[in-house]
């Protein structure tokens, strides 16, 4: 079984967010990059399944310049078997999804997995777009994935509950919290092997991006926290009603 895992390269969760170039670009100075945590959870789940059923080949794919190689090699260190980097700046979700769909078409994969969103743009878009480019089923926000032969059983979170979905291969699913408990920590052997695993760099196919960043802005800073006496929570309710007008 061959699985394509799409990973994105994002600033570490503790990063301070700053912008440059008249607030049109993210300031990469001193930023540590990681695999987006939801992608890491998805990979962890795939490895668990692989250990259970055997015979699974996991290809990690990402879109980016050579600067993202360490991030994709991290996926190899954790346990992906090989990797593909589509050599292009990831301009927008549509562009990225198209590239991943092309890699899928060229590789006889059985399904695609990714995280529900990258933690930088949090768009929740790429997985579903890949499915539509390939004209195959998709299940977003998967909180559980089990494989049974050619059928996947996926639990998807929906508003006010969850839905159990069965889909034949091929399909696309994006993992969210719960798909695996903790992201897997690579073992030392895996880290040393990462460079020995194939990382194929392929050119991008043409795909117009339809969105672009105009500028970034920071949230307005809040005033000082108004402290209320612990013996008088009724005062809090009054303020929430009369001052903040949220009750």
């Amino acid at each position: 079984m061959k699985v394509l895992l799409a990973v994105s390269h994002v600033p570490d969760t503790t990063s301070k967010i700053r912008f440059v170039n008249k607030d049109s670009e993210f300031d990469k100075t001193d930023i540590q990059y990681i695999i987006s945590p939801f992608d890491e959870l998805a990979l962890t789940r795939l490895l668990q399944i692989k250990e259970q059923i055997g015979g699974m080949h996991i290809t990690a794919v990402t879109v980016g310049g050579a600067d993202v190689d360490p991030t994709i090699r991290k996926a190899l260190a954790i346990g992906a078997d090989d990797a593909v980097r589509v050599d292009a700046e990831p301009t927008d979700a549509l562009f990225v999804a198209r590239q991943i769909a092309e890699v899928f078409k060229n590789g006889e994969f059985d399904f695609v997995m990714t995280g529900k969103e990258s933690i930088d743009f949090t768009g929740n878009q790429v997985g579903e777009m890949v499915a539509e480019f390939l004209n195959i089923p998709s299940v977003a926000s998967a909180a559980s994935l089990e494989l049974n032969g050619n059928i996947a059983t996926i639990i998807r979170e929906i508003d006010g509950g969850k839905e159990v979905i069965e889909t034949p291969m091929p399909f696309v699913t994006s993992g969210q919290k719960g798909i695996a408990k903790e992201p897997r920590i690579p073992n030392m052997r895996g880290i040393m092997m990462a460079r020995k695993k194939p990382l194929n760099v392929v050119p991008a196919v043409e795909q117009a991006a339809h969105t672009k960043v105009v500028k970034f802005t920071m949230p307005e800073s809040r005033g000082a926290c108004k402290m209320i006496d612990a013996d008088n929570p009724a005062e809090l309710i009054r303020l929430l009603h009369e001052e903040a007008k949220v009750l």
Partner: peptide, 23 residues
């Protein structure tokens, strides 16, 4: 921008070759 919208908007964007912004 709920669980349903997050599934449909991106797929529709590909269908209609449209730009999409979520959330």
């Amino acid at each position: 921008h709920n669980f349903t919208g997050r599934s449909l908007a991106p797929r529709l964007a590909v269908r209609l070759d449209a730009g999409t912004v979520s959330g």
